[in-house]
């Protein structure tokens, strides 16, 4: 992850597209599309066609299944040995079966199902991230457009973006005097940097050709913004949005551990205090899956919005 950040969070001068291509999930996705894009053989046209397709599908599905099974097996063996402190996968499922099958129970207070815990966290992320998107793109446009603003703000951004998310929590608690806004602020301040920086790089990299077209057509500021700037910078903006959502989800768990209340972060902390290690493992699996889906969601939206924006 840090390698990706290093590549994208600096004001790169090159024209390379930042994060999207460096994402670890990308090669798998690409492989899948090549297979899907292959011309479909007509049924019955080739007796070997079905076998071949089956083989291709298997080639994609088998490795992750095998590796996951091996991983679980090793885990099971290590956790079953005498003196092991962490629960084995089988143990986790037995212990947390009630939580798995009843994600929506509500006994009041913090005692609610996993789905509610996750939704509470997602709600905070949604608020913080939405603010970060609006402010980040706005500031990114400013910094990308104005050399003066870039020179003035860039040092500030470069220093502030290295501050770890949780370091913002005390100061935001002091400022907001309430835990929920503080958590939202932490999400905001965590997610905003890659959005600002990628947006500004995207704006700076707008081809002079498009600028000339806009000048010959005498587009006004608003027309230029909507017709040229946003679409031209969109691939970069979405790289920033994708890193931003990842960071936001990373930060929420830590922030919630400290602020308490309903949320997956505090659920984990609570489980730790009650020595319910199986609950923690289950929560981690859920956190991982939700993070993965958030990342995919932004990637899919990005691919859809930026379709055709690569100059042909």
């Amino acid at each position: 992850m840090s390698a990706i950040l290093d590549r994208t969070l600096t004001f790169g001068s090159g024209r390379e597209r930042p994060a999207a291509d460096a994402s670890p999930t990308r090669p798998v996705a690409r492989k899948a599309t090549t297979i899907a894009a292959r011309p479909q053989p007509r049924p019955g046209a080739d007796p070997g066609a079905w076998a071949r397709r089956l083989r291709n599908t298997a080639a994609v599905v088998v490795p992750p299944v095998v590796v996951t099974a091996l991983f679980l097996l090793i885990w099971e063996m290590m956790a079953s040995s005498p003196g092991a402190v962490l629960p084995a996968p089988s143990q986790v499922i037995t212990d947390t079966w009630e939580l798995i099958v009843n994600p929506f129970y509500d006994y009041g207070g913090n005692d609610v199902g996993m789905a509610w815990q996750l939704l509470a966290s997602l709600e905070r992320v949604a608020y913080g991230y939405a603010l970060a998107v609006v402010a980040g793109i706005g500031l990114g446009v400013l910094v990308g457009q104005s050399t003066w603003a870039m020179r003035g703000l860039d040092p500030l951004f470069q220093v502030l973006r290295t501050v770890p998310p949780l370091a913002w929590l005390p100061i935001s608690l002091a400022a907001f005097q309430a835990s929920n806004p503080s958590a939202i602020f932490v999400i905001f301040i965590t997610a905003i940097w890659p959005i600002i920086i990628n947006t500004s790089v995207g704006i700076r990299n707008i081809s002079q050709d498009y600028v000339n077209v806009a000048r010959v057509l005498r587009l006004n500021g608003f027309e230029y913004f909507t017709k040229i700037m946003l679409p031209a910078a969109a691939p970069y903006v979405f790289s920033g949005l994708r890193i931003g959502i990842g960071l936001a989800w990373l930060a929420i768990v830590a922030a919630e551990m400290l602020i308490g209340g309903v949320g997956i972060g505090f659920f984990i902390w609570d489980a730790w205090n009650a020595s319910m290690l199986s609950d923690i493992v289950l929560a981690l699996v859920y956190v991982g899956l939700v993070g993965f889906f958030l990342d995919r969601l932004v990637a899919i939206v990005g691919n859809w919005v930026t379709r055709g924006t690569q100059a042909g």
């Binding site: 050709d209 498009y210 000339n212 077209v213 000048r215 010959v216 057509l217 005498r218 017709k227 040229i228 679409p231 031209a232 969109a234 930026t306 055709g308 924006t309 690569q310 100059a311 042909g312």
Partner: peptide
């Protein structure tokens, strides 16, 4: 003194907006 639609340009690399 500035660009305008009375002097339209055909650019060498077409400069169509790809989106």
């Amino acid at each position: 003194s500035k660009p305008g639609p009375d002097r339209s340009v055909v650019f060498q690399n077409h400069s169509l907006l790809p989106w």
